[in-house]
C-alpha cells in the first residue's frame, strides 16, 4: 500500500510537474516566437535610428523650413510658397543653376573620359604603372582645403606658377580665378584633377576584371584593338562607368569648398553654385527659409537627374 501510495504521490507530482513544465514551455515558446519576429527589427534599429536622426530628420526639417521666413533668432513666420516664388523669379538663381549644370557637365565629362584613357594606359600591371597609379590617386586622399590653397597659389594672376609657365612660352598671362570667363573652368580643372585618380583606379580594376579570353576570342574574330575596346571593354565595364558617372554627377552638384575658398562665388557670380548659394543665404544673410527652399530645389534636381540618368542609360548597362 505504502509503496503504491508513495508511487501514486510521486506519479501525481510527476504529472503535476509535467503539466507545469508544459505550460512553462508554452510560454517560453511564445516568447521565443515574439523574439524571433522582433529580432530583425531590433537588429536594424540602431542603424535606422541614426539614419532617421541624421538623414531623414534634417531632410524633412529642411522641407519644413522652406515654407517659413526665419533668421535663426526670431520666430518663424509661415510664408507658404513665397520662398519658391521669389527663388524662381530671381535672375541670380538661374545664373547659379546654369553655373552648377555647366560645372557638373564638364567635371563629369573630363573626369570620366580622361580616367578611361588613363585606365586603358595603366591597366597593364607593371611596376611603373603601379607607381603612376599611386601618384594619380594621391589628390584623392589629400584634404580638399589644402589642395585648394595650393591651386590658389598656382593660379594666382600675379605670382602664380601657371602664369609663369605661360610667360615662359610667350603667352599672355591669364586671370585664372579673377576673370569671370575662366574662373568656373579653373574650378572645373581642379575638380577633375582631384577626382581623376579615384576614377582611374576604379576603372582599372573594372578593366582588369574583364576576362582575358574575351580578347583572345576577339583577336580570332579579326577585331582591331579599337573594336575590342568599344565592343568588349566598354560594355563590360559599363556598370562601373554608370556608377562612377552618377557619383561624380552628384558630387559635382554639391561642390562647395573650392568655391568658398577660392572665389566666393565671384567674380560677378561666375562661380556661384547651388551649394555655395545656399551657404550664403543661410549663414551670411541668415535667410534660413530661402536657403532651405534652395536646398529643396537642389535635392529635387539631383533626384530628377538621377532618375533621368537611370531611365535613359540603365538598359544599356550590362550587369552579369
Amino acid at each position: 500500500m505504502m509503496k503504491s501510495k508513495e508511487g501514486a504521490v510521486v506519479l501525481e507530482q510527476q504529472t503535476g510537474m509535467g503539466l507545469r513544465r508544459v505550460s512553462f514551455d508554452q510560454i517560453k515558446c511564445k516568447v521565443r516566437q515574439y523574439f524571433k519576429q522582433l529580432m530583425p527589427y531590433g537588429m536594424v534599429l540602431p542603424a535606422m535610428a541614426i539614419l532617421g536622426l541624421f538623414v531623414l530628420y534634417p531632410i524633412f526639417y529642411m522641407i519644413y523650413l522652406s515654407f517659413f521666413k526665419w533668421n535663426l533668432i526670431g520666430s518663424k513666420a509661415f510664408v507658404g510658397l513665397h520662398n519658391f516664388i521669389r527663388l524662381f523669379s530671381d535672375k541670380a538663381f538661374w545664373e547659379v543653376l546654369g553655373n552648377s549644370f555647366q560645372y557638373m557637365f564638364f567635371t563629369v565629362f573630363f573626369a570620366i573620359v580622361l580616367a578611361i584613357i588613363l585606365a586603358v594606359y595603366l591597366k597593364r600591371e607593371t611596376k611603373a604603372n603601379k607607381l603612376l597609379q599611386s601618384i594619380l590617386f594621391t589628390p584623392h586622399i589629400v584634404s580638399l582645403i589644402s589642395i585648394t590653397f595650393v591651386w590658389m597659389w598656382l593660379m594666382d594672376s600675379n605670382y602664380g606658377f601657371l602664369n609663369y609657365l605661360l610667360s615662359i612660352l610667350g603667352l599672355p598671362a591669364m586671370g585664372w580665378l579673377t576673370d569671370s570667363n575662366t574662373a568656373l573652368y579653373s574650378l572645373i580643372l581642379i575638380s577633375v584633377w582631384k577626382s581623376i585618380g579615384y576614377n582611374t583606379l576604379i576603372l582599372i580594376s573594372a578593366m582588369q576584371a574583364v576576362p582575358k579570353y574575351l580578347y583572345e576570342a576577339a583577336s580570332l574574330d579579326n577585331a582591331t584593338k579599337w573594336t575590342s575596346f568599344f565592343k568588349i571593354t566598354l560594355p563590360m565595364i559599363s556598370p562601373t562607368l554608370f556608377f562612377l558617372t552618377l557619383m561624380n554627377m552628384i558630387a559635382a552638384f554639391k561642390v562647395f569648398e573650392p568655391v568658398k575658398i577660392m572665389t566666393q562665388g565671384g567674380p560677378m557670380n561666375a562661380t556661384n553654385t547651388l551649394v555655395y548659394d545656399i551657404y550664403q543665404y543661410g549663414f551670411t544673410f541668415y535667410k534660413i527659409g530661402y536657403a532651405s527652399a534652395l536646398g529643396v530645389v537642389l535635392m529635387i534636381i539631383i533626384g530628377i537627374c538621377t532618375i533621368l540618368y537611370f531611365a535613359g542609360l540603365s538598359h544599356r548597362v550590362h550587369y552579369r
Binding site: 574575351l214 576570342a217 576577339a218 580570332l220 568588349i232 560594355p235 563590360m236 552579369r320
Partner: peptide, 18 residues
C-alpha cells in the same frame, strides 16, 4: 590569330556576354 584561317572553341566558350 585572325588571319590564320582558323576558328577556336574555348573551354568556357568565351561568348561575348554583352
Amino acid at each position: 590569330p585572325g588571319d590564320r584561317q582558323i576558328a577556336m572553341v574555348f573551354q568556357n566558350y568565351a561568348l561575348y556576354p554583352t
